[in-house]
């Protein structure tokens, strides 16, 4: 899933400093799963903003709403009525950055703000801990590395083994980062496939990654 985390409250307060009435929109997709922007987090953020503004003697009115997803036009359409019937100063999205962009794309007369920082594609290691697992390079090669991704998980995206800074299973960048090359080595050893790591992994074609420009997938079989 897309893993995101909420921006600091101060930053969000600064965004809405000039507003009296806003719509805060959550998303029931990835950001609900990673506890960043679901119905619950929408409620918490709305309360926090209202309390802070009340303290300042400058109250703000906030309507709350959570869409099924913010990365599909059909759900974004559900904002049409509330936007028409209310005089919002802005919409604040609690989705990953796709959400606010979809809202902006659909409604050209309302200001849109992100309240989350979209961080990475990853998963939960344990309750409350998420880690990056994929960089979306557009050409998956993890089967060459025991099913682990050195592009996303090695700090230097090395494809041919650990750098000299790998120590005690940890990356030189931080003791909080596992050296993925150590993990790859251990796993390939376990699988009896160490020979594969002896082969030089060739230079990667990054044109399928963001380096080839913004990407689009067109499935003719699904298009109407």
């Amino acid at each position: 899933m897309i893993v995101a985390e909420r921006k600091p409250i101060k930053e969000i307060l600064a965004m809405v400093a000039d507003f009296k009435k806003i719509l805060l929109v959550g998303c029931k997709g990835c950001v609900t799963v990673c506890n960043a922007g679901g119905t619950k987090e929408v409620g918490i953020l709305a309360s926090a903003l209202k309390i802070a503004r009340k303290k300042e003697g400058n109250p703000i009115e906030i309507d709350e709403m959570t869409l099924e997803r913010q990365c599909d036009p059909e759900y974004i359409d559900q904002l049409e009525e509330p936007l028409k019937n209310n005089n919002y100063d802005a919409v604040l999205s609690m989705a990953c950055s796709v959400g606010p962009q979809f809202i902006a794309r659909r409604y050209d007369n309302i200001l849109v703000y992100p309240t989350l920082n979209t961080c990475f594609m990853g998963g939960a290691l344990e309750h409350g801990v998420w880690a990056e697992f994929c960089q979306g390079c557009g050409n998956c090669i993890i089967h060459h590395f025991g099913g682990l991704c050195p592009i996303a998980r090695c700090s230097k995206s090395l494809m041919n083994g650990p750098c000299g800074g790998s120590a005690g299973g940890k990356c030189e960048v931080s003791p909080d980062i596992d050296c993925v090359w150590h993990l790859i080595y251990d796993r390939m050893k376990q699988l009896g496939k160490l020979d594969q790591l002896r082969e030089i992994f060739p230079i990667k074609d990054w044109s399928t990654s963001r380096d080839g420009g913004p990407r689009k997938i067109v499935r003719e079989d699904l298009k109407k």
Binding site: P162, S166, A167, G168, L194
Partner: peptide, 23 residues
């Protein structure tokens, strides 16, 4: 090129040298 005989995993360090030679 460089080689670090003291990096981990230690057992992979000679393999890495072999790869650099092959490269």
């Amino acid at each position: 090129a460089a080689a670090n005989p003291f990096g981990d995993p230690f057992e992979f360090r000679v393999t890495r040298l072999a790869k650099k030679i092959e490269a």
